[in-house]
Design a protein around this nucleic acid. Structure first.
Lengths: 336, 336
DNA sequence: AAAGACATCTTTAACGTTTTCGATAGATTT
DNA sequence: AAATCTATCGAAAACGTTAAAGATGTCTTT
């Protein structure tokens, strides 16, 4: 392996000088600095992270936690898109990304212990359920910048999708197409859901529409079956809606099943809209009208934020970032 | 931070003794070993990975590479399922998992350099295209156990889905339902595809079915549009098949569009089967008959294999593991 | 009883960095 | 000419761990 010492010998300088040259220290002449950097490159030098980490007590890595209890883990496209862009942005910033779990070597350990073990410089929590609070409380024990996706906690940074604006955009669009009887099948009780329901009501009210309570039905995210059941209820109403908002895009598959079963044509007989902008669902016909969340930007912002905080050092001051999505007008909302 | 030294002082023994006690060395009395372990636990000791890694030149971590040029990255459910189980199994074995990319700190670096930088003990390559060979040749530069998913290379370990058996199972089932005119829309030209096409032909031949060349059409994986086009071609044949095999499950959405457009009822008018066992697709109606690949077992086997090889040390001897999937009889293959 | 064998613990060096502080020499000031 | 400053570099310690080799005392063997 080519180490600082080897380079030092090759250059006829001291080990310390090489270190300084490669770290662009201020007390070295430009000439030697460049000469050493040149030689280092020629020799194919790669710093030894372990040594670096040991000395600086920084690992230049971010840990990522995603709630394991959720029905869907990494397989949810929204989360894997976030993970993907987070990873890429982190690497661009010089940080590697690894998984923090609640076990290691067969023994159960807390997230905080795992994070401390790897000495990571920041942690991103990606989760889909409200059980996140347990994770957050656990990971708090380890003192480093922590960011949470789509959840807000006291003293913890967050990157959230702007559900309020998204819901307004969606309702505004549907209203612009002439719909006045709009139902909302909402997902599991989480921050996100509460924000959407709130925004949905506000948006309707803003348009002078009042929403009868039977137009608001609970289902679950990523669970077409529950949405299908909810859809059935809606269609059975004496005064059914002309447009139905779904918990997410995947749920469209469930709604679709029910519509087809009851011979409802989309969008001729009933309109429908999703939420997420999942690519797979965009392949099913008719094309779902939905609000695509900017997962890439969310991951990117999260990485930037953690890097910023890690470099600022103690005390870590939480930030909150909201990322807007954008409407994808498909074919499932009909003008009336 | 609580270090070995602190524990040594607390126990009144030397630092080395503590190290040995925690590593369960053979030249320590059972009594002191247990006493020290007890104290260490009470003090909340966590080993410092950086120091450990520096000293042992092992990082107790696996790197994972997935081909970036593919149209779909982590968002493909098959791959994220593998990643997920790989990560979990690796952690159980005491290895953390991090992403190896081709850039770091804004600069482009090779996968090998990245791996060396983090000093990882093993590398898993998950990729969807044939460009994998570039990745493999790159990563070869770094001397450590390397495993490849669904690809086989000289001197590189592999964990592959048993496509041959899978295809036979699928064709056998379809044949058992009475079908004799079976078409196969196959995906991009990769190891996997070639294996499936080969197995498809062999299976048909085994049943005394001969497959006209126009029953074999190329499309792309994870690309419903191309499958829709291929489906159109098949339906336009003077003697169309009674059953169509698709590249993968996602493609079902494309085939479905074409069938619906041409008013073909499934499975009354035509039968169809997929490959993968993607959960999302299982929500669309009618339920797709498919062959579910055991992604979890593949990830698990990969982790076990890498750990085994890492512990065996130089020279690393490649292994090849084949994992069987299982048939999911849905509703899309009709008995005739 | 001397000599080895064994069990148990300690000493010490090393892994590859970073960083503080000191050293040297030339340039500048008084 | 002496003193101070500045720029540039080197020596050495430290980060927390492991592992080889040494030390000590006890037990067995002859």
């Amino acid at each position: 392996m080519v180490t600082l010492r080897k380079i030092a010998e090759a250059c006829g300088v001291s080990l310390a000088t090489v270190s300084k040259a490669l770290n662009d220290a201020s007390d070295l002449s430009k000439a030697t600095k460049e000469r050493i950097q040149q030689v280092a490159k020629e020799m194919g030098y790669m710093p030894n992270m372990a040594a670096k980490a040991l000395r600086t007590s920084r690992s230049y890595s971010f840990g990522i936690i995603y709630e394991e209890a959720a029905k869907y883990g990494l397989t949810h496209e929204f989360f894997s898109r976030i993970l993907n862009s987070f990873m890429r942005s982190a690497q661009t910033l010089g940080y590697d990304v690894f998984f923090v779990g609640d076990q290691l070597g067969g023994k159960h350990i807390s997230y905080a212990e795992h994070a401390r073990y790897r000495n990571c410089d920041g942690i991103l929590i990606i989760a889909g359920t409200d059980r996140v609070s347990d994770v957050v409380n656990d990971v708090r024990q380890y003192d480093c910048p922590v960011a949470c996706i789509d959840f807000e906690f006291e003293g913890i940074s967050s990157v959230v999708s702007d559900n309020t604006r998204g819901m307004h955009d969606l309702v505004d669009y549907i209203h612009s197409q002439g719909h006045r009887k709009i139902a909302f099948i909402y997902g599991d009780d989480t921050h996100v859901t509460r924000a959407r329901v709130r925004a949905f009501k506000a948006a309707c009210q803003g348009h002078g529409i009042d929403v009868p309570p039977e137009y608001l039905i609970e289902a679950f995210y990523h669970d077409p079956e529950s949405t299908q059941a909810a859809t059935r209820k809606l269609l059975a109403l004496s005064d059914p809606p002309t447009c139905v908002l779904l918990p997410d895009d995947i749920s469209y598959l469930g709604a679709l099943n029910e519509f087809r079963a009851q011979r409802f044509g989309i969008p001729q007989d009933i309109s429908v809209a999703g939420y997420d902008g999942i690519s797979v669902v965009q392949y099913v016909h008719p094309h779902l009208t939905t609000l695509r969340q900017d997962a890439e930007e969310m991951g990117n912002q999260a990485a930037q934020m953690l890097a910023r905080q890690a470099e600022a050092g103690h005390p870590f001051t939480p930030e909150h970032i909201s990322v807007a999505g954008h409407l994808i007008p498909g074919e499932t909302v009909r003008p009336i």
